[in-house]
Computed example of a mutant assay.
Amino acid sequence: MASPNRIGFPLTPRRSPRALVLRDLSPEEAGAAIDWSGWYLPDDAERPDKVGRSEVVRLLLSVIAQLARERGWADLYAGTGHFFAWVRSEPFVRVLPDLYVLDHRPLPPIPRQWQTWLSGHRPPRFALEVVAGDWRRMYEDAPAKYWQLGCPELLLFDPEAAAARAPLAEERVPLQLYRRDADGTYLRVHGSGDPVWIEALDAHLVVLKDGPHPTLRVARSSRATDLVPAEEEALRAEGEARALEQRARVAEQRARAAAEARVRELEARVRDLEARVTRR
């Protein structure tokens, strides 16, 4: 029996929402209230500064846009800075992915918070969380939250683990991918620094360490050499290709003009010789 509280009413046993993911509930727990308070994310919540987060997100959004352009995915949408809530009675039980992908481009205006119990509000097809702060808690809580949200794929990117010259804690790895199985189980299908295939993108994500902080890029294959350029890189390459083509065209026109001038010069000499012969 539950212990009484100070005003004489029995306390309702409360269970953690994490228990919904990690183990089956006993009959007693199944009827208990859920204590969601540990998962509240208020508007003014302080999020730990994430090493190179803004650059990781900016670059990856640009690369995904270029990938969609290459493949003609006009309806795919990748965004950042929006909450996702899934418990109607607990609107502050939510996540704020660093980057997310939707199968269908939403009509503007995009809500600051997606609420999956509303029509047209769906969980993301893919979500990225950049690990910072209390990494142990993030490693433990994030999969449980995104499983309950209904997100099919979650990638945890740990920049500190990716940048470390020597191994950190044994559990820390640059990339962890969780994927919802056919029976609804959330499984960790990848846990290393190697390229990882993302179903939602039909491409691989790879860790690059070229700059001051590790970043993520999209590769068309598991080889990190076949990278999809960012939009600005693609536009620059297209501009350089057009400039090269223009220079080649100008050079060809000049060569043709020079050849034609040479032909005209030879023809004029021939006519001059013919005229001299006729006068004799």
Rank of each mutant, 00 (worst) to 15 (best):
E28Y: 09
E170D: 13
D158T: 03
L102R: 04
R125V: 02
D226G: 06
A268G: 10
R262T: 07
L25S: 07
G38L: 08
E240K: 13
G8I: 03
H82S: 08
R217S: 07
A68P: 01
V207M: 08
W117V: 07
D202S: 15
T80S: 15
I34Q: 04
S54C: 05
E171C: 10
L96E: 15
S192M: 12
A166L: 14
L156C: 04
I64M: 10
W114H: 05
L60Y: 08
V131S: 06
P111Q: 06
L60E: 01
L59D: 05
R14C: 14
D24S: 15
G8K: 02
Y100R: 02
A237Y: 10
E171H: 13
L235H: 09
A65Q: 08
E238C: 00
D181T: 02
R249E: 14
P27C: 07
V196G: 01
L155F: 09
D98W: 04
G38V: 01
P42W: 09
R242Q: 14
P124Q: 06
E265L: 09
M1D: 11
R254H: 06
A251Y: 00
S3T: 15
Y146A: 13
P27Q: 04
A219K: 01
H190F: 13
P91A: 03
G81E: 07
G239M: 12
D98Q: 05
G191Q: 15
S16D: 13
G150R: 02
R217G: 03
Y40D: 12
Y178G: 03
G31T: 04
E265R: 13
F157V: 01
R69V: 00
I198R: 03
A275C: 01
A144H: 08
A78E: 02
W117M: 08
